[in-house]
Simulated assay, not measured.
Amino acid sequence: MLNIKYSFLVPVYNVDKYLEKCLESIIIQRQFSSSCEVILVDDGSTDYSGEMCDRYAAKYPNIFVFHQDNSGLLQARATGVKNASGEYYIFVDSDDFIENNFLDVIDHYISDGHPDVLVCGYFLCGRCNKKRCIVTDFEAESISKESMLEKFAGTDKYNRVWGKVVKGNFLKEHIDEIYDCAVNIGEDKLQTAYIIKYASDFLLINECLYNYILRDDSIVHYKSEKDIRDAIYIYSKVRGIVQKICDDQKYSSSEANELLLSYDSNALNTVMEHLFKYNKRDISLSEKKVALSGILEDNKNFFVSNKKEIKLKFINKLRYRLYINKKLVMLHMVDRMLFRFKKMVYR
C-alpha cells in the first residue's frame, strides 16, 4: 500500500469485549482504504483479543498485527511506532472508539495547516452519561510550543496521547529516548512531554471526535503501591523534560520557576489523589501503612523538598500534612470518609 498518510496505532491487551467496536469505528472512516493503515499490537493478551486481531488482519490488507509478550502499554506503543509507515500517527486505545467523521475533520485541518500535532476534543463516556470535553474555546486554535507547555504543566487535561494526531518522523527519530522504560501508569504524560519537546507547532480543535470509555475495572478507579511509585517516577522524569524545554526555549529564571511551580503543584495534587485511590482498596490498614511509609521514605525529595509554595487543592492540603507527618491512620480515616461521601454524592 502506497502513500499512507495516517497510521492508527492501537495497543491491545485483554479487550475482547471492546475491540470490535474500536476497530469498526476506524474501518468505517471514509479514507480508510485509500490512505490509512492500522497497526495492532497484541501485548500478550490472555483472552480472545489476539485472535480477533488476526481475523481483522486477514480480512483487511491495511491492518497489521504484531504479537509480543506482555510488556505494558508504553512498550506496546513503541512497537506500533516502530512498525508504522504513515506521515501522521493517530493513537487509539483499544477499549475506546472514534466518531464516524473523525478522519474527515482531522484531514481537513491537517491538509490546511500541516501542524506537527493536532489535538481534538473528546467525549468522556460513563455507564449512563456522556460528557463533552473541549480543548479550546475556538473552532481551531494554532498555538506555539511555549503555550502548549504551559497548558501541559498546569493540568492533566492535555496529558493524553489517545486522540492525538502526531507527525511520525520525530517519534521514530527519538524512539529509544521516548520509550526507554516500562511503566503501567503515567505513560501518556511521558510521551506527551516528549511530543512537546520535539514538535514545533500545535493545533487544537474544538470538535469532539474521540470517545474515551470509563470502564468499571479501569485502573483510574483504584491504585496499587506500584502505580503510585510509577507515577512519582514519571512525574520526576517529566519534570526534567519540562526543565530542558525551558532551557532550550531560553526561558528566564523567573519564567521557568513559575512554570515548574505550576507543574509541581499539579504533580503533587495528582499523586495525593492516587494515595486516596490506594486507601480506597479493600486491604488491611497495616498493609497500607507499610506501603505508604515506604513510598514516603523512598521519595522524600518529591514529597518534601521545595514544597512551601506548592498550591494544593483544599482537601489535599490537609491530607498532605497528615501524610508527610506520617499520620497514616488519620489519613486513612479521612480518605475512607471521603470515599463514602463521594459514593453518596454520585450514587
Rank of each mutant, 00 (worst) to 15 (best):
Y198P: 02
I213Y: 13
V220K: 13
G186P: 05
V220M: 15
I195N: 00
C208F: 07
L204N: 02
L209M: 09
K172Q: 09
I213M: 14
F170C: 02
L204S: 02
L190A: 04
I185Q: 07
I178R: 00
C181I: 15
V183S: 08
E173L: 10
Y198I: 07
K197R: 13
I219E: 15
Y198D: 04
I213W: 08
A193H: 06
H221K: 14
D201N: 15
I219A: 14
G168W: 04
Y198L: 08
Y179V: 03
N211P: 09
L171T: 01
L171D: 02
D180Y: 06
A199L: 06
S218V: 12
D201L: 01
I219Q: 14
I205S: 03
R215A: 14
A199I: 04
H174D: 03
L203V: 08
D216Q: 14
I185L: 14
F170Y: 11
Y212E: 12
I175L: 05
A199E: 06
I195D: 00
I196C: 02
I178P: 02
K189Y: 13
Y210W: 09
A199W: 00
Y210R: 05
E187I: 07
G186I: 04
A193W: 07
N206I: 08
F170T: 01
N211K: 09
H174T: 04
L171Y: 01
I175W: 00
L190E: 02
F202A: 00
N206D: 12
K167Q: 10
